[in-house]
Amino acid sequence: MSQHNVSININGTEHSHDVDARLLLVHYIRENCDLTGTHIGCDSTSCGACTVIVDGRAIKSCTMFAVQASGKEVETIEGVADGGLHPIQEGFWEMHGLQCGYCTPGMIMCAKTLLEKNPDPTEEEIRWGISGNLCRCTGYNKIVEAIQYAAEKINQPEAASA
């Protein structure tokens, strides 16, 4: 089995390791880089708990080999807060967008690219956008409200914090 030296920029920090070709990106992030905010849920490309952003696109990190991400920029939940909570994180806090919290990192990473692509989504567009992320607690309503809160805050920062 081939071994490869991978260099991946995760949240602005360069990580470099020798890894087996078969090492999945999610295992690299969690075990080689100790960034355990990215969760493993289903391990079958179904649930989206392992969602990270690779070169601007949200993907399931259980369905990419670490070697494929070499040279790329990866963003995980640990890189989202900048000083204070990111508006999406604040939305999940304010609108009770989580219960057990297991799906939350993946939901937030997916929502982040959703809002970057479409800063003012309708409720239907939000539901469609997070349709690859499963939540078994909330029934999704509170997650949708959290993302709506974030969209409003990002678009009108003063109004939402008033």
Binding site: G48, R57, I59, I130, S131, G132, N133
Partner: peptide, 9 residues
């Protein structure tokens, strides 16, 4: 096809 995360890849 599949879901938005899968379609990104």
């Amino acid at each position: 096809i599949a879901d938005p995360l899968v379609r990104n890849q």
